[in-house]
């Protein structure tokens, strides 16, 4: 890959982010702001002595502990953000190959020397790699604000704050684990990604309804014709976080190289190929 190719891919990713500022920046920033404001408001009801005890307790609890070992605890804090990331991903993927057909700007994008495969891949990389980075960046800023706040409080209460440093490091380490989990989840959920992209490229309107409706229809057909529910069971097994959750850095490869993961990637790739083919001719 030469410099021009790199510049091209960067521009394609930038274009995706620029198109959805509310979804990719607005949602996590608003969420973080709400959490900070709510916590700031709630702490006004806590008596000074209890606040001092809480800060001291945290500083003592984490002092000297390995951030990597403690990181999984802090992953819980990211749950609301991951939930909103998933909602953003569904909205983004269902519109990503539909919106430009609706407003006819697809003619402009197609007039550029960018292949349909590159276009579709840029959508997947955006939601699987770039957007989680934005979310984790927002969380990191939120953690920094929290750390500064706790440190100032600790210093004003004359508490030994070194332990807060360990806590902050554990929180930041948890973000790396959450990020890896979301990247691995985008591979684990590649069949869903492919399914949404397929209907985004196919539907003349309401692609999300098409995607959900077609899936329910397939499930019903399976039930009536074969009297089985493999499809529903498979979806249930894909919803299990144990398929993609990374609780330690060493478990990344264990998650990536499983039969279920590779089978899902294969199914997802077939659906994505379908989306690329649908994108070929815009009529």
């Amino acid at each position: 890959m030469n410099n021009f190719d790199l510049r091209r891919y960067r521009a394609m990713l930038k274009r995706e982010v620029l198109e959805h500022p509310t979804l990719f920046f607005g949602a996590p920033v608003l969420e973080a702001l709400l959490i900070v404001l709510i916590l700031a408001w709630l702490q006004t009801f806590v008596p000074l002595e209890e606040k001092r005890l809480a800060v001291e307790y945290m500083a003592v609890l984490f002092n000297g502990l390995s951030p990597t070992d403690m990181a999984p605890i802090f992953m819980l804090l990211a749950i609301p953000f991951v939930a909103s990331l998933y909602i953003s991903a569904i909205v983004y993927l269902t519109n990503s190959l539909y919106q430009d057909r609706r407003d006819t700007s697809v003619l402009f994008w197609q007039s550029m020397p960018v292949s349909n495969l590159q276009t579709v891949l840029s959508k997947i990389v955006t939601i699987g790699v770039v957007v989680p980075l934005i979310y984790m960046g927002t969380l990191a800023i939120m953690y920094c604000i929290g750390a500064i706040w706790l440190t100032v409080m600790g210093l004003s209460y004359e508490v030994e704050v070194a332990g807060l440093g360990y806590m902050f490091m554990a929180a930041l380490t948890s973000l790396a684990l959450v990020y890896l989990s979301t990247v691995v989840a985008s591979l684990w959920l590649l069949p869903t990604v492919g399914w949404l992209l397929l209907f985004s490229a196919f539907a003349k309107r309401t692609p999300l309804l098409w995607a959900i409706g077609a899936f329910i229809l397939l499930g019903l057909i399976e039930g009536f014709v074969f009297n089985t529910q493999y499809l529903a069971n498979w979806v249930e097994s894909r919803s299990d976080p144990s398929g993609y959750l990374i609780l330690s850095f060493g478990s990344v490869f264990d998650r990536l190289f499983t039969y279920d993961m590779l089978f899902g990637i294969a199914v997802g790739s077939i659906l994505i190929t379908g989306a690329v083919y649908m994108r070929r001719f815009i009529d």
């Binding site: 407003d103 006819t104 020397p113």
Partner: peptide, 22 residues
């Protein structure tokens, strides 16, 4: 090979096709 062809060909349709959000 549309994308290769578009290195040698430019296209303007009617005025509505530039992405409005850029």
């Amino acid at each position: 090979s549309r994308h290769k062809l578009m290195e040698d060909v430019c296209f303007i349709a009617d005025v509505g096709i530039l992405p409005k959000w850029l």
